[in-house]
Write a protein that binds this DNA or RNA. Structure first.
Lengths: 100, 100
DNA sequence: CGTGTAAGGAATTCTGACACG
DNA sequence: CGTGTAAGGAATTCTGACACG
């Protein structure tokens, strides 16, 4: 299911250009647990297009005055809810379609 | 029609890791007109996932002993052929579907 | 022709900290 | 809390060239 969208290959400078968000902010949002870039051997951050999209949504929330803690909680709740829905669907269909 | 696949956002080091092709070779294939990365303001090369795929195909050809000039000609011919086919289709359907 | 490598410089990224508020 | 910035160092990339074949 993973595609180009999820490959972590973009450096922070490009992400900053793509989103218009400063590198300082991008690193800070990571520190607050909103995004999770990978790292190269030497510690260079690598982001996916999915991360870029997430950052755009985060930026919107921030402009609305939402705090990082709240954004994180919202994302976490949404994630759990989606996982439960997927679980229900899988139970219903008895894994007719592969889950992997 | 452009998507993540065509966005030029990957630096040469990552492309090298993704493809297993040395940076020297990647730059050389550009010099020979096989790939066309974009450049940042300061001259840093940026590649797309499409470029990565193209490079994998180039690597196969090279292993078969095909020369860069021949690979370039093949790609050029294929491109022209595809453009002609698209032209015919567009004429036939009278641009029923938008061309943009 | 295709590719490795050393060379020197420029551009990028990283972290921890101080500042402001 | 969220973000800018200067600081020093490490990692990345660039070009032109020499080498081999």
């Amino acid at each position: 299911m993973s595609s180009y969208k999820d490959k972590k290959v973009i450096s922070i400078g490009i992400v900053s250009e793509l989103t218009g968000i400063s590198q300082r902010k991008i690193r800070y949002y990571e520190e607050r647990g909103l995004i999770f870039p990978e790292r190269s051997n030497k510690g260079i951050r690598k982001y996916s297009f999915q991360d870029v999209e997430t950052l755009m949504k985060i930026a919107e929330k921030m402009e609305e005055g939402v705090q990082t803690a709240e954004i994180r909680n919202d994302m976490q709740r949404r994630k759990i809810r989606d996982e439960m829905i997927r679980g229900q669907l899988n139970a219903h269909f008895r894994f007719r379609n592969s889950d992997k």
